[in-house]
């Protein structure tokens, strides 16, 4: 087996990054002439397998075990490690989800083979691959070469490949098994829960003014509130503003906050880290004010203002009133 994709369970359905990984694997198969298979595991393995088998893959491996019914980092890491040892894939692909962050490094340590995490692109030079990764909070990119013997663990950032590009087909399923016992699992997990919500629902907002760390201090928050009021917009923020206690957690946009898609997202002093961008890039019009011309937010902005928000925002509010 050349490429093995691990498809994550999201309540009985494939995690959205699962199909993106299939697209990534097919891209690699085309370029390198390799075969690609997927693996599903856990209590929803059957329904995930029927979803995955509708794609152009060699095989779908189905792994069931009592100790894999609920996710644990120890159980999942050990299971995937054993499958890697028995199936011998060269590349193991994952979507860079929170779950993958949690358990895939353990596989890397068990095998002492590299985990090329959060990659955004893959390049081929003869038979060698290199992976592109964002560094320095997305201000720079780097090309990374894995070295030494296979296998290589690779995860792709959300939307690095498009799920629509995954070619359909029909793959056969095969049951696989691993040896696990409960002493291997050192954690005891409770049910996932949501904090009692309340606060703002941004998902339906037409217009959003969003503040980042560039607002400088808590005393400047009213400046953004006034602009939002003048526009009739909701106020949201990036994570550091919530971490600092300047706005409540329900204001946070991003991978651990809300996902929004307003007609206009006016971003003030937000650098544009991927965990923020995934929550707002579906906005129809992105207007960004940032004093740093290199800020990654400008890569996705429709309208870019390179300037000091503390000077621009009060005047903008005034002009709109």
């Amino acid at each position: 087996m050349d490429i093995l994709i691990i498809i994550e369970d999201n309540n009985g359905k494939s995690h959205r990054m699962g199909l993106e990984s299939i697209a990534a694997a097919q891209h690699m198969s085309d370029k390198l002439g390799l075969s690609a298979s997927a693996m599903v595991m856990g209590k929803n393995a059957d329904s995930l397998a029927s979803e995955a088998s509708a794609y152009d893959l060699d095989e779908v491996l189905v792994l069931k075990h009592d100790l894999l019914n609920e996710y644990s980092s120890d159980g999942y890491a050990e299971a995937v490690k054993q499958i890697i040892e028995s199936e011998n894939p060269t590349y193991i692909l994952f979507g860079h989800s929170y779950q993958v962050r949690d358990y895939v490094p353990k596989i890397s340590a068990k095998l002492m083979r590299p985990f090329l995490a959060d990659s955004i692109a893959i390049h081929f030079d003869e038979k060698n691959v290199s992976l592109t990764k964002q560094m320095f909070n997305a201000k720079l990119l780097s090309d990374i070469n894995p070295s030494g013997d296979a296998p290589y663990l690779i995860s792709f950032q959300s939307a690095s490949f498009l799920s629509d590009d995954a070619k359909t087909g029909s793959a056969t399923s095969r049951e696989v098994s691993v040896m696990l016992d409960s002493s291997m699992i050192k954690t005891d997990s409770e049910e996932p829960f949501k904090e009692a919500s309340g606060g703002v629902d941004l998902t339906a907002a037409e217009l959003i003014v969003s503040v980042g760390r560039g607002i400088g201090k808590e005393e400047n928050i009213p400046m953004a509130q006034e602009l939002a009021a003048a526009l009739g917009a909701e106020l949201s923020s990036s994570r550091p503003v919530v971490d600092s206690g300047w706005l409540s957690p329900s204001h946070q946009v991003g991978s651990s906050g809300q996902s929004v898609s307003p007609k206009m997202y006016l971003s003030l002093g937000i650098s544009g880290a991927i965990q923020h961008v995934v929550g707002m890039k579906a906005s129809k019009n992105i207007v960004a004010i940032n004093k740093d011309p290199e800020a990654p937010i400008f890569e996705i902005a429709d309208y870019a203002v390179i300037g000091d928000l503390l000077e621009i925002v009060p005047k903008l509010t005034e002009a709109l009133q």
Binding site: L140, L141, I144, F298, E299, A301, D302, I306
Partner: peptide, 20 residues
């Protein structure tokens, strides 16, 4: 090392951005 940086560079924008 099992992985090493070959090259570091600035990203280029895919989107057409209007500069204000």
């Amino acid at each position: 090392q099992n992985q090493s940086i070959k090259k570091i560079y600035a990203p280029n924008s895919a989107k057409e951005t209007v500069m204000v």
